[in-house]
Amino acid sequence: MTDSLVVAADPEVVFDYLVDPRNRAQWQSSLARVEDVVGEVGVGQRWVDVTSPGLRPVMETTEYDRPYRWTERGTWRGFTAELTLVFEPVGQDCRLRWTMGLAGRGVARPIAAVLNRLAPLAVRSDLRRAGAILSRPHRA
């Protein structure tokens, strides 16, 4: 599923904020904190998302083309999720497009199929929250 929204901020600012795992707990609703960040922001950077329900997926940046495109992959038990963000200038603002998908192996497969329908709604909500943070007058 592909979705988009416009953020009232420069694409480079939006990119730098969203791809840095240290900022994630500010805008990702299910995230309690980020731990074990290894590496600089870019391809190969790894970290652990500690979610509010107690899950601990291992995350990794797999694509980093500043300020245009970024992809992360998360794995936890039988699940793998991938999120790609595309940043496009629209005047002084940024159109943020994204695709995400969730796959499951074994017994996780039918659960992943259901989550694939629900997760895009959560991603949209979280990215709207990030957009609101970045659109604040003091951030411009």
Results as ranks from 00 to 15, higher is better:
Glu40Asp: 14
Ser29Gly: 13
Met100Ser: 15
Ala108Glu: 00
Met100His: 11
Gln92Ala: 13
Gly106Lys: 00
Trp76His: 13
Glu35Lys: 10
Pro120Val: 08
Asn116Leu: 00
Arg66Tyr: 01
Leu5Gln: 05
Phe15Tyr: 09
Ala108Gln: 01
Asp49Phe: 01
Met100Val: 06
Phe87Asp: 01
Ala81Arg: 05
Thr61Phe: 03
Val58Cys: 05
Val19Ser: 04
Arg46Gln: 15
Thr61Glu: 08
Thr80Lys: 01
Ala32His: 12
Arg124Gln: 14
Val48His: 04
Arg95Leu: 03
Ala132Lys: 15
Thr75Arg: 15
Arg105Glu: 12
Met59Tyr: 03
Ala122Tyr: 07
Ala8Trp: 01
Arg22Asn: 10
Val19Glu: 04
Thr51Glu: 12
Arg105Ser: 12
Asp93His: 13
His138Asp: 13
Gly42Thr: 10
Leu83Ala: 09
Leu83Asp: 06
Gly54Phe: 09
Glu82Trp: 05
Val37Arg: 03
Gly78Val: 02
Val86Ala: 10
Asp93Lys: 10
Arg22Met: 08
Leu115Phe: 13
Pro120Asn: 10
Val123Lys: 02
Pro67Arg: 02
Ile111Pro: 02
Arg95Val: 03
Asp36Val: 05
Val34Pro: 05
Pro67His: 04
Ala25Gln: 12
Asp3Gly: 11
Leu31Val: 15
Arg56Lys: 14
Gln45Thr: 06
Thr61Met: 12
His138Ile: 06
Arg109His: 06
Val13Gln: 14
Phe87Tyr: 15
Trp47Phe: 13
Pro11Thr: 04
Leu83Cys: 08
Thr71Glu: 10
Val38Asp: 13
Val34Cys: 08
Ser125Val: 01
Asp3Asn: 14
Val13Gly: 00
Trp70Asn: 02
Arg97Lys: 13
Glu60Met: 03
Leu115Ala: 15
Asn116Ser: 15
Gly104Asp: 03
Ser29Asn: 10
Pro11Arg: 00
Thr84Asn: 03
Pro137Phe: 05
Val58Gln: 13
Pro53Asn: 09
Leu121His: 14
Arg46Val: 10
Gly101Gln: 12
Pro21Gln: 09
Gln26Ala: 15
Ala81Pro: 02
Trp70Lys: 00
Pro11Ala: 08
Ala130Met: 01
Arg109Cys: 02
Leu5Phe: 00
Asp126Ala: 04
Arg24Cys: 12
Pro110Met: 05
Pro120Tyr: 05
Gln26Cys: 09
Arg33Tyr: 05
Thr71Gln: 01
Ala122Phe: 11
Asn23Lys: 09
Asp3Ala: 14
Arg66Ala: 13
Arg128Pro: 00
Arg22Gln: 11
Gly78Gln: 07
Tyr68Met: 09
Arg129Ser: 14
Gly106Pro: 05
Cys94Ala: 11
Thr75Gln: 14
Val14Tyr: 01
Ser30Glu: 15
Thr71Leu: 03
Val123Phe: 14
Met100Asp: 13
